[in-house]
Computed example of a mutant assay.
Amino acid sequence: MFATPIRLARGQPSFLRRSLDEFRRQAGIAIRMEGLHQPQKPFPLMKFDAPESPERCKIMSDQTNFGGYSRAALTYVPGAAHIDGEGGQGRIGGGESAGEEPAHALFKGSISTELPPNRSEIQRSGFAAWRTRDRGWSAFGKLLWDIDPYSYLALRVKSDGRKYFVNIQTESIVPTDLHQHLLPCYTPGQWETVTIPFSAFVRTSYGVVVEPQKEMLQQKVKSVGIGLTDRVPGRFELRIADVYATNRAPEKGVVGREDSGFDLDMDDEEEKQGTGMMDEVEPPRKKGEPERILI
């Protein structure tokens, strides 16, 4: 089997390369007997360390989803090399000690809450997001991330202070399920590594908190990404260097579900309005209309 030009153009490795990488990963786990102890090294999910890195991500916004006016782009910015384990185990660094920026991706654009014309079914607009593309298949089956041995998700970012959400999608029975948490940035305008416990993520569907709040299926993670849902018109800019799983505890206070950006005690009427990303693109279901299932 050969990779198609389209897949190669998007920065995805070939089927043979994916199979070899997966074999190397599984063999390394067996040789190091990682199942017998807690991993100390970080587990990269997305590293923006090469010009083709943004091609492994999918961009979403009003404009791309239903003809709205919010725009978004993800572009590569060259910089210092990424170094696994810099500043201690369980962390990815690079660039801080030299006083230069690390190689990263710039997520930028503008938010507009103006509704598209001739689309009466669209009730709300004003979102932008990116997520990693599906990793495809290998000789070992569908490629998913197994981050079950890790306790935290870490992101090395430089924020503009707006309200971004971190989104994790797993191989769930319900394809619209997302696990979301507010991106807790403490020093806007400066590079920082923020850490979120996987246990603090909130299960949502179309941006609405759903019950029961089951634990995330960390053995089968499909994608990770970031969305902007504050619906405040104007420009935005977020720089991302790395997204990785780790067992290194956060240096600042540990965030929990109460810091997720969702009001878990809201009443039924408030819950119907939604608070996350996906409710911006899915109109309320009319009486008698069958439930929509995304594939």
Rank of each mutant, 00 (worst) to 15 (best):
M1K: 15
P5A: 13
R10P: 01
R10M: 14
G11D: 04
L16K: 14
R17W: 08
R18Q: 14
R18C: 02
R24C: 06
H37F: 14
H37N: 15
Q38W: 09
F43V: 01
F43Y: 10
M46K: 09
K47D: 09
K47A: 14
F48S: 02
A50Q: 09
A50R: 11
E55H: 13
G67V: 03
P78F: 10
H82I: 06
I83T: 10
G90Y: 04
G90C: 08
A103R: 07
L106W: 07
L106F: 04
K108L: 06
K108Y: 06
S110I: 05
I111H: 03
T113E: 06
P117Q: 14
N118C: 09
R119N: 12
R119W: 03
R119G: 00
F127A: 04
W130V: 05
W130S: 02
F140A: 15
F140I: 07
K142S: 05
L143Y: 01
W145T: 03
P149S: 07
L155T: 04
D160K: 08
R162S: 03
F165H: 09
F165S: 07
V166I: 15
T170G: 02
I173Y: 05
V174I: 10
H179F: 15
Q180R: 11
H181L: 11
H181F: 12
P184Y: 00
T187Y: 12
G189I: 08
Q190N: 13
T193N: 04
P197C: 11
F198T: 05
F198I: 08
F198S: 09
S199G: 12
R203E: 01
T204F: 01
Y206Q: 10
G207H: 00
V208Y: 00
V208H: 06
E211I: 03
Q218I: 02
K222V: 09
V232W: 08
D242A: 04
V254C: 12
V255Y: 07
F262P: 02
D265Q: 12
M266W: 10
M266E: 15
D268N: 08
E270A: 15
E271Y: 05
Q273R: 11
Q273G: 02
G274P: 01
G276V: 00
G276A: 02
V281I: 13
E291A: 12
R292G: 03
